[in-house]
């Protein structure tokens, strides 16, 4: 056996467990779900037609996309300066700041969402402090609206935005900034023309990450959102658990999946995502 053939075999063997796992626990259920979505009594594509044809269901999709988009925008705006500060810190300060960024990863989303519910509720600490200070005379409606959903989701997703941007930032050759400065550029010009373009792959990777995760978010919008702000994930849950229409649930899943693939393909055209996600 030639060396390269042996290399390929070794690669295949190393990948085998993961491939088997995915095949058994991911591809098979997915195929079954697809089977369900096209086996409606009214015809194979009836559920799809019903979802895309109805104003109500369309609104759910638009809502979901819009929520994911705004959450992504806010996350990027917060993550960019945070990642920059991380690149400037040294030693202990760096370690401390980095753990602060990673800390949310270690606590379950459910617990964090409940924590926000406690903080934001009518008799929660925020309202009480504001009342005590006399800033308000009636408790604010902080919970079950777009604001609380955004707060909760951004909180969960921020690390996914910080890390790729940070990885892009530490790859920027410091001397390029010096060169720009030495050529007479004001700091704003150095930022806009050198730093921002060079860190853009990280921003794009972060945006794609956060957006895709936000699209499929369930717990946070379900617990922190109002009844009007229903997302696709919540819709699917309702269709399965309350209305027991598996064909519609399956179709909704596949529409979401199709949107995700389309967006990924679009993003991949602009940035080599693999490169942006893996720090050298």
């Amino acid at each position: 056996m030639s060396l390269t053939a042996r290399g390929h075999l070794a690669t295949a063997l190393l990948l085998l467990p993961a491939l088997l796992f995915i095949a058994v626990w991911f591809v098979t259920p997915l195929a079954q779900l697809f089977q369900l979505s096209v086996s409606d009594k009214a015809g194979p594509f009836a559920p799809y037609a019903q979802l895309l044809g109805s104003e109500v269901y369309r609104r759910v999709f638009v809502n979901t996309l819009w929520l994911a988009l705004t959450v992504t925008a806010i996350s990027i705006l917060l993550a960019y300066p945070t990642a920059y500060v991380l690149t400037r810190l040294k030693g202990w300060w760096w370690t401390l700041a980095f753990y602060c960024v990673l800390f949310p990863f270690w606590i379950s989303v459910l617990i964090r969402t409940f924590a926000w519910m406690l903080l934001l509720e009518k008799n929660g600490p925020i309202n009480r402090v504001l009342l005590e200070l006399g800033a308000i005379d009636r408790p604010l409606e902080l919970l079950f609206n777009a604001g609380s959903v955004h707060i909760g989701m951004v909180h969960v997703l921020l690390p996914y935005a910080v890390l790729p941007i940070y990885a892009a930032m530490i790859r920027v050759d410091h001397r390029l900034l010096l060169a720009s400065d030495g050529l007479g550029a004001a700091p704003l010009m150095t930022f806009l023309r050198i730093y921002l373009p060079l860190t853009m792959p990280g921003v794009t990777a972060a945006a794609v990450f956060v957006f895709l995760l936000a699209l499929g978010f369930f717990i946070t919008p379900a617990l922190l959102g109002g009844v009007s702000a229903i997302t696709v994930a919540m819709l699917i849950e309702q269709l399965v658990n309350e209305r027991l229409v598996w064909s519609l649930a399956g179709a909704a899943s596949f529409i979401l999946l199709a949107v995700i693939f389309a967006l990924l393909a679009l993003a991949a055209r602009f940035v080599p995502l693999g490169q942006a996600l893996v720090a050298r």
């Binding site: 001397r175 010096l178 060169a179 400065d181 030495g182 050198i194």
Partner: peptide, 17 residues
């Protein structure tokens, strides 16, 4: 540096990629 009007050629050039 930006106010000194100095031309610098860096080691390995530091060209804007």
């Amino acid at each position: 540096a930006r106010q000194r009007n100095i031309g610098m050629v860096f080691q390995n050039y530091a060209l804007f990629p």
